[in-house]
Structure formats: structure tokens, C-alpha cells
Nucleic acid binder design. Structure first.
Lengths: 346, 346
DNA sequence: CGATAAATTGCATTCGAAGTCAAAAATGTT
DNA sequence: AACATTTTTGACTTCGAATGCAATTTATCG
């Protein structure tokens, strides 16, 4: 009540109508609403004189097109949803995606998931907002993926490759990358015993990295590899090291962490609490190539995911499919780049 | 052409109409469209029987309300814009904001700025999308702020306090926090000479932190303080240390960095390149209290910003103003929490 | 200059849900 | 059972811009 009253008041008194519509512009310029609309549509048939008159009125009234109304009729919201399971890990990805979408005049509706259980609630919201497409850096069930087809909404997974599902994705080759790391460790000739710190057991990415490492180690004849589970966080890297030491009674020659954060935790635990020398006593490697990997404190050997390329690929794949819904699913696999570092003994 | 054709084809062949509207539901349930609409409005007058019939039809057809259409008539998009200058710094903030908005059924349109010059273009987009409100962790000019009033869009600044402008904000008390850090340094009795690594000169936050430090140092009788400028990044912390040493020919007793990232850079540069001991030869302090501050490698003395409280405050302040546009601007100032750490000599 | 083609403009309708209001149904009262 | 109340319901209009189509203007050419 009070609200309506006050906004009406403002409309009347302040001579600043709060919502200037294309009709207002049309009236002010003495043309039709269609004409105003056309002036905002690139490539529309509008005479120079008309455009000028309209644009003057637009400026005088301070008109801004209403994207909501436009979206209703064009069935194009120019919004995409970005679903990330946890923004704290790898903000660069969201940042890159956001920047690239912005370049294409597309806006990002951000959905962060605290618990993976929020997925279905999140998808409800996604449907309601009529987004043109979705980028998911989170795990969706096969049924959930299927609804995207039913609803005809393009979907691109970021770093989640589904083997048996026909769905587009952009990923970094986790297995290849992990193998490269093992090669690097083996090549130094200093590592006989290995331990692996995996990510959470429901993480496909972690599974792949672990598998890649184990496979390659096996090829080198290393079979008894200690595995402990982490949660991708720094602290879990610390804990993992404690567990490893507890289990073996000593440190292995190399600790392979499923991501950089855990590698940092592992290095710090080794150096500052267990007083081992990295890499003197034990080598540590990670995965991802986050910024801190190149900090002197760590100088971590890792695999750098080509975030820019991957983001660009995800964005362009998505927008291609928004423009043509009939394009078939496609999986793009990028190689990571081995970053050598002094966390490996040589 | 091809697109329309194909989607029509799908509509006809696949028996799955792509867009199920409230009319479809109404027809299927044998009721009016108004009735369907009412079933989705909490607290509306609908009989039990009606609700049941409608909800059955909803399920059978797989109907989802169209938030775009709803927003058009209700003038409430249930979307807010979050504008951040650089997502890479402090992803926690965006993460917290996102989670809290989600809890309130509000969706986040994310705008990241690469260059501050993008602000005006970004605001254009913000207007078009009829967001209910905006949270800005970026610098806006006075005129830009004024347009929010003209357009009657609530705006809350995050960690940007404008002294002479009537605008709402949530911030951490930079000056108080910095003074606490200086107190802590002074209290150890080991620090005579100081250097400051500031943030970029156009950062209000950096100015405040620097001012707070200088003021307190002056009160302690310290006046000749070396200042070098950084950009909030790790590398600029390294460079800053080089410059400081170059200028004085030796390290000061304490280096005060305007944020944690630069403090990390400074510590690493000191320890690994100049081979000084931190804190033995020189103490380092930061500001922000990012996760890595508590990593053993750094154990950085810093001021922890109460991100959760601040995010909650920003969100609730914004939503209050969305509900009642007449609420006056309000500035909320949170104290940071001093985090002691072994980066300070004692 | 007149005829024809091409470019421009306006009218009327559309998108999908929500709100207004009056009619209809259910409930309560005597 | 007759009436007054309250609750439900549906017809119709609205939000703001885009678009198909017809009407109009302008350009082109013989």
C-alpha cells in the first residue's frame, strides 16, 4: 500500500516516470512503438531520419529497453546459467566464463551449490528463468541430464566427462596429465615408493587422476601404492600426510595429490610439522596449476589446466548450440601442461 | 528459418510441446488460467480440490512457471546484480553472497569487470535486466550512483564506503584493523623501522589501510615510513620488497602489506630470493584473512574480515530495501578480527 | 511523368503469467 | 428455506517489446 502510494507520488511529482517504455518514447517522438523497437534491433529497416528522431527521444527520456519483456517474445533471455559446485575452488574458471559471456552480450546467472543435493532445486530455478543454456561444473544425474534434452536447453559440462551419456563437455585430460606427472617423477630416478592423496570419492575427476597415476605407476612396476582420501582442501592434504606416515611409519619418496590445494597442505605438513624436507626427503606433486603453485613457497610440480582455452571452448560450444539446437553433442579434451617445480627431487 | 522449422517439427512429432504454459495446464485440468496462476502464488485463495486438480495437470505436463513472464507483470525479477571488479580476489565473498541470496529465493546475475572502465557498459546491462537490486564490490562514480536513485534500484556497496555520498554500504573497518596490526607490531617491541606496500592508488580500501597504518605509526612516533605501490597481486608483493631493499639498502623491521596476497609475495621474496628470515629479520603483516593466511608456510598476521557477517548484512540490507524502497541509506561497519601469526617477530 | 519496385512505417497481435473484479459456489445464520 | 457472508472461480486486461502484414512513402526506370 505505502509502497504503491509512494512510487505513484514520485511518478507524478518528480516528473521522472520510473519506467520509461517504448510507448513513451514513441509518443514523445511522434512515431509508432514498432519504430522504436526496430531502432534497437540491429539490421532492421529504419530510415536515418527516423532513427535520429527516436534516439533523441530515447536520450531525453532516458529510455532503456526492458530485456525481460524482450525475452518473453523473442524466447531468448540472453542469459546462461553457470552452475558450480563450490566457487571457492577455482574462481578463475567462473571469472573466465563470465568475461567471455559478457563479450558476447550474454549474462551469467550464477548458481553455487553447497551440497550436491541442491542440484534438483537449482535446476527448478534454471528452468523457470528460461536461460538460453547452461554450463555445469557440478555433477548431474543421468535423469537430470535428460531433462535438458526434453526442455531443449543446451548443456555443457566443464571438467565432468560422462562416458556413456550423450552430452557435451569440455575437460582437461586428467589421465594424460597424471601420467605426465608420473613420468616426470620416474624420470628423476629418485622415487621408489609412492603415496596418493585422492579427492572425494564421488568426484569423477579425482577418480580419473588417481587411475591415471596408478596405471602409469603399474607400467613402471610400482604396485603397492598407499592411497588416502582427501576433500580437495588444504587441511585434508595435511591430514592425508599424517595418515600416510602413520600407515607406513615413514614418508614415501613421492606423494601424488589429486589437486594443488591438497599438495600445499601436504607440503606444509611435511615441512613444518613433521620436519621433512621437500623435495629432499619427499617429492610432492599436485594438479590444476592454480596461481599459488608458482609461489616460491611451493614451486609445485603440477599439471596446469588451460583454463582460458577451456573456458573459451565451453562458451563457444554453448553459444553455437544456443544458435542451433540441432548440433550434436561434442566432447572436447584439452591437454594439461606439465609445470615442473622444485617440489620434485632431481 | 531452419530453427523455427525444427522446433515446430519437434513440437509436432515428439509429442512433447517444448513450452508448457499455464494455459496448457488450465486446459488439461479443465480450469481457468487464473486458477493455475493462483496455485503458484503462496497464500492465494484456492480450494483444496482445485489445487489438487491443477497440480496433477502440472505434473503430467511437466509445467514450470515462466519467471520471465512473471517478472514482467509483477515488476519483480527476483534477480539481483552482483558487480565485482575482480573475481579472482576474494571468491569467498561472491560465494557467500550467492548462497545467501539463493536461500531467499533470489538469483544472482554476475558481472565481473576486467577494467574499471567497463562500469558504464555494465550498468547499461543492469538496467536492461530489471534486477531488483545491486551489490557492488567495485568503484562507481557519483553520477553512476545517482542513476540508481533515479531508477529507484537499491544499491549496496561492499567494502567501498563513500564518505560524502548518501548510499548504503557494508564494510570492514579498514582503519581500525590496520591500527590493530600496528599495535600488535609495536607491542612486540622489536620494530623500529617500517615499510608499507600499498594497493593500487585508485583503491579506496588501500588508501584507508595505508592511512590507518601511517596514523598509528605516527602516534608511536614513527614518521619516516617507506611506501611502495603494489596491485594487490602476489608478484607485486615480491617486487615491492625488491624496491624497498633497493631504496634502504636493507630490510626494515616490519613490512605492512595492504592485503594478504602481497604479503605472501613479500614473504616469499624475502625468504627465498633475498634469504632473509621472516620473522627473524623482518616481520610481515597483511590484511583480509584469506584462507592461505593460516597455511603453515605463511602463518600470516593479518586482519580477518568477517565475510559471513558482511555478506549476510549486505544481503539483508539489500532485500529490506527491495521490499521497501523508502528505507534510508545505511552504512554498516564491521570490525575485522586480528589474527596473530608467526610472521611477526616477538 | 507515370508505372513499378523497393524501402519504410504503423496497426494489431503475440509472448506467459498475474491481478481486478464480478459472478458463482460454498458456508453460515435465523 | 430464505437470506447474508464468505470463499472460489473465471473472463478480461495488463506488463513491454517484437513481428507479420498491410499501407504508405520513397526511389528507380522507361
Amino acid at each position: 500500500m505505502a509502497k504503491t502510494g509512494s512510487s505513484t507520488r514520485k511518478e507524478n511529482f518528480a516528473n521522472t516516470k520510473i519506467h520509461v517504455t517504448s510507448y513513451d518514447v514513441a509518443r514523445h517522438a511522434g512515431v509508432s512503438q514498432s519504430a522504436v523497437s526496430r531502432c534497437f534491433k540491429p539490421g532492421a529497416s529504419v530510415s536515418k531520419k527516423m532513427r535520429e528522431r527516436v534516439m533523441n527521444a530515447v536520450k531525453e527520456l532516458g529510455y532503456t529497453p526492458n530485456a525481460i519483456a524482450r525475452g518473453l517474445i523473442t524466447r531468448r533471455s540472453n542469459m546462461v546459467a553457470v552452475i558450480v559446485s563450490n566457487l571457492n575452488f577455482y574462481p578463475e574458471v567462473v571469472s573466465e566464463l563470465s568475461a567471455r559471456f559478457t563479450d558476447r552480450g550474454v549474462h551469467v546467472l550464477l548458481f553455487t551449490l553447497d551440497h550436491e543435493s541442491d542440484v534438483s532445486r537449482t535446476l527448478e530455478q534454471v528452468w523457470q528463468y528460461q536461460v538460453d543454456g547452461v554450463i555445469a561444473a557440478a555433477h548431474l544425474s543421468a535423469e537430470e541430464i535428460a531433462t535438458f534434452n526434453e526442455r531443449n536447453v543446451p548443456l555443457i559440462f566443464y571438467n565432468r566427462a560422462y562416458e556413456d551419456v550423450q552430452v557435451s563437455s569440455v575437460s582437461c585430460d586428467q589421465i594424460e596429465g597424471e601420467r605426465a606427472l608420473i613420468n616426470r617423477l620416474a624420470q628423476s630416478g629418485e622415487h621408489q615408493s609412492y603415496a596418493i592423496v585422492t579427492g572425494p570419492s564421488d568426484s569423477v575427476v579425482s577418480m580419473q587422476r588417481t587411475r591415471g597415476a596408478l596405471e602409469r605407476l603399474k607400467e613402471f612396476g610400482v604396485t603397492d601404492v598407499i592411497q588416502v582420501t582427501g576433500d580437495y582442501g588444504y587441511k585434508s592434504g595435511c591430514r592425508a600426510v599424517q595418515q600416510i606416515v602413520e600407515q607406513r611409519g615413514s614418508v614415501p619418496d613421492a606423494i601424488i595429490c589429486a589437486n594443488d590445494m591438497m599438495a600445499f597442505g601436504a607440503m606444509d605438513e611435511l615441512r613444518y610439522h613433521l620436519e621433512y624436507d621437500v623435495p629432499g626427503d619427499v617429492s610432492v606433486v599436485g594438479f590444476d596449476g592454480v596461481r599459488a603453485a608458482s609461489w616460491s613457497s611451493f614451486d609445485l610440480a603440477t599439471v596446469v589446466q588451460p583454463v582460458e582455452s577451456m573456458a573459451e571452448a565451453a562458451v563457444s560450444m554453448l553459444m553455437d548450440r544456443v544458435d542451433d539446437h540441432n548440433l550434436p553433442p561434442e566432447k572436447r579434451l584439452f591437454s594439461g601442461v606439465l609445470r615442473d617445480g622444485s617440489s620434485i627431487r632431481r
